[in-house]
Design a protein around this nucleic acid. Structure first.
Length: 153
DNA sequence: GCCAACGTTGGC
DNA sequence: GCCAACGTTGGC
């Protein structure tokens, strides 16, 4: 089983939006970066654990956890000219982008903020504290996962 | 709102 | 294949 961090801008989708959805499950559409797509396509498996990370809007940080419940499949928004995720280069015959489904697991009573993460040496290898890191899906080490979960208790 | 850092595009 | 220009991300 692998561990991940997935970024979202709460103005678009926040961890609290899961609760409005059937089965507290959301498709993770709109990933338009090849490296992030490859993580989903090649490595994400059912049962993998995911940190839900809010970017841009204060407080920035990890707000809770989710589980992968459906492995990568075609993100159909790439074909929709009215979608902001539209990609004119993609066709149903040759799709480019994929998405997974994730189900909410836990919302932390207090988010683990980026500020906190930066202050903790054990978390200094995490993608979100690397300067200039813009990857919207990042692998997380088991030790980092465990550390943050403990912190969130 | 600013702007550095980054990924992508497209002309050559 | 190079690389300048451009658009986007995301912390502050």
């Amino acid at each position: 089983m692998k561990y991940w961090l997935m970024k979202t801008e709460p103005g678009t989708f926040s961890i609290f939006d899961f609760e409005k959805l059937p089965n507290q499950t959301s498709q993770w559409e709109g990933i338009r970066n090849y490296q992030a797509r490859n993580f989903m396509r090649d490595e994400m498996k059912i049962g993998d654990k995911v940190f839900i990370y809010h970017s841009v809007v204060e407080p920035v940080g990890i707000f809770g956890t989710a589980t992968v419940i459906k492995e990568a499949y075609v993100d159909y928004f790439q074909f929709d000219p009215d979608s902001k995720y539209y990609d004119p280069k993609a066709t149903p015959e040759k799709p480019i982008w994929q998405m997974v489904d994730v189900k909410l697991e836990e919302i932390f009573s207090q988010p683990i903020t980026l500020k906190q993460i930066k202050e903790i040496r054990a978390l200094s290898g995490m993608g979100v504290v690397q300067k200039g890191s813009r990857l919207s899906i990042q692998p997380v080490k088991k030790e980092e996962w465990d550390f943050i979960l403990k912190l969130a208790q």
